[in-house]
Amino acid sequence: MDSRTMIASLPCLALVIVTLGYLGLCVVSPFGRCRACHATGRTRSRLGRIRRDCRHCAGTGLRLRVGRHVINHLHDEYEAAKR
C-alpha cells in the first residue's frame, strides 16, 4: 500500500471506529437524557405557567437512543426471519 491509499483510508477507518463505539455505548447504556425537558421530566405549557410531564420522555427524563432503536429493529427482524 502506498501513502496515498493509506491516507485515503484513514477517514473510513475513523468512521467505523466512531460508529462501533456509539453502538457499544447504546448496548451498555441504552437511555440518554431527554433534550426536550433537559432530563427533568417536566415541561412548561404553551402559556408558560403550567408545568406538565414531558411528552417526549413520559416524565422520566430519559429517552431511548437512536442507535438503540436501530439495534432493537435489527433484533426484531432477525427474530422474525428465524420463524
Rank of each mutant, 00 (worst) to 15 (best):
D2G: 15
D2T: 06
R4Y: 11
R4E: 12
M6R: 15
I7E: 14
L10R: 12
P11M: 07
A14F: 06
A14E: 12
L15R: 10
V16A: 13
V16R: 12
I17R: 12
I17P: 04
V18W: 07
L20P: 00
L20K: 10
L20S: 11
G21D: 03
L23K: 00
L23A: 05
L25M: 07
V27P: 00
S29M: 12
S29H: 15
R33E: 06
C34S: 03
R35D: 07
H38W: 03
H38V: 03
A39P: 02
T43S: 05
T43N: 10
T43W: 06
T43V: 09
S45H: 03
R46H: 08
R46W: 08
L47I: 11
L47F: 14
G48S: 05
R49K: 09
R51Y: 07
R51E: 08
D53R: 09
C54T: 01
C54W: 03
R55G: 05
A58L: 14
G59Q: 03
T60R: 02
L62V: 00
R65P: 02
R65T: 04
V66C: 04
V66H: 10
G67M: 08
G67Q: 00
R68L: 00
V70M: 07
V70N: 05
V70P: 03
I71E: 08
N72P: 01
H73T: 14
L74G: 07
H75K: 09
H75Q: 06
D76Q: 12
D76H: 08
E77F: 09
Y78M: 13
A80I: 07
A80L: 15
K82A: 08
R83Q: 10
R83C: 07
